[in-house]
């Protein structure tokens, strides 16, 4: 199994969320199929934040939505606290879903423009037929850093993007979820506001005992908030790595390419001009017809025949660190900073 495998999964009784052999496919014109997610597995233990990192088209959002059964995956198992979500429908799924809440990229368009903040926040429990006290709404608004007296009667267009994202988080919290799934929650926000929301998510997670799946394309953001990071490429998992070891110890050629591509504003005073290695020019292959074997091989400087023939499986590369690459050892021997990999291989 390709860039997949299940070695990185933790014992079953520790998992809050467990996803196995997840496949998400969409029909395309001409009888073709978009292979969005192709047999990936991951899990989430109590209180953990799992970061899913990848570029557009890697399947990270499809994977996140498949957890919520939005839409249900083509195949594979999703379990929340041991209860299967795949294959169950109707009332049972509805019950389970309230334990998972989702935060989306565009906070303004995820809120009904005609409703007031107090009603937006209370909407979830009201759908469940629960009584919602004003005190509870105030408490949650307070927890997300909004002044209830100020925003109470406002509508989304009267709030900034950051404030709308706070309302979205408040909405999610009203249902006392166990798992929060955040899909690019800060990518439409300015840097200064992005930091506010990231801090808020960390606080919220601690205060409400949440576990979190954090999906984003920004490496530094994902690294900062996650305990464990899963790097995806074209529907497959490349690497699973504890976030503290991402920058220095990542060994998948794709992860290294990502790391080398990040432009940084954190220059050291004595550092020379950024050594920017020449990037790989190859294009992202089509998810309609992904490459055989390792899907990254068409852009990988280390690719060999083996990579075309056999799909690499996730295997250990250190404590809690797993990589799906036939040549990870070669990468591991190269210096962790820039240039080495791309130039030597090209």
């Amino acid at each position: 199994m390709a860039g997949s495998g299940s070695m990185h999964l933790r014992p079953e009784d520790e998992r809050v969320l467990s996803v196995e052999e997840l496949v998400v496919e969409f029909p395309a014109k001409g009888g073709q199929t978009v292979h969005a997610v192709s047999g990936i597995s991951f899990d989430l233990v109590e209180g953990e934040t799992l970061g899913i990192l990848g570029e557009s088209g890697c399947g990270k959002s499809s994977a996140g939505r498949a957890i919520m059964q939005l839409p249900p995956p083509t195949s594979g198992q999703v379990r929340l606290g041991g209860e299967p979500l795949t294959g169950v429908g109707g009332e049972k799924l509805r019950q389970a879903r309230s334990q998972m809440q989702m935060i989306f990229q565009d906070p303004v368009s995820s809120l009904n423009p005609r409703r007031k903040v107090k009603d937006l926040v209370a909407e979830g429990p009201r759908i469940w037929g629960r009584q919602v006290s004003d005190d509870k709404i105030r408490e949650v608004l307070d927890a997300v850093g909004l002044n209830p007296d100020v925003v109470w009667d406002r509508r989304p267009h009267e709030l900034s993007g950051g404030q709308c994202q706070r309302v979205c988080i408040a909405r999610a919290l009203m249902l006392d979820p166990r798992v929060l799934i955040c899909d690019e929650p800060v990518s439409s926000l300015d840097v200064s506001v992005q930091a506010q929301i990231l801090n808020l998510l960390e606080d919220t997670k601690a205060r409400y005992d949440l576990s979190m799946v954090f999906i984003a394309h920004d490496i530094a953001v994902v690294k900062n908030i996650s305990d464990r990071i899963m790097v995806m490429y074209l529907g497959k998992v490349c690497e699973v790595v504890p976030s503290g070891r991402l920058a220095k110890e990542a060994v998948h050629p794709y992860t290294r390419l990502l790391l080398e591509s990040v432009p940084t504003a954190h220059l050291d005073a004595d550092q020379q001009e950024q050594g920017v290695p020449s990037a790989l020019s190859a294009e992202l292959p089509s998810p309609l017809d992904p490459p055989s074997g390792c899907r990254f091989r068409t852009r990988c400087p280390l690719a060999t025949e083996l990579c075309a023939e056999r799909e690499p499986e996730l295997r250990p590369a250190g404590d809690g660190h797993y990589v799906a690459c036939h040549h990870a050892e070669v990468v591991a021997q190269r210096p962790p900073v820039a240039t080495g990999l791309v130039e030597a291989g090209a």
Partner: peptide
């Protein structure tokens, strides 16, 4: 305000 890749997580 920008997270730094070289710093430890959860800062």
């Amino acid at each position: 305000a920008i997270p730094d890749l070289d710093e430890p997580p959860h800062l």
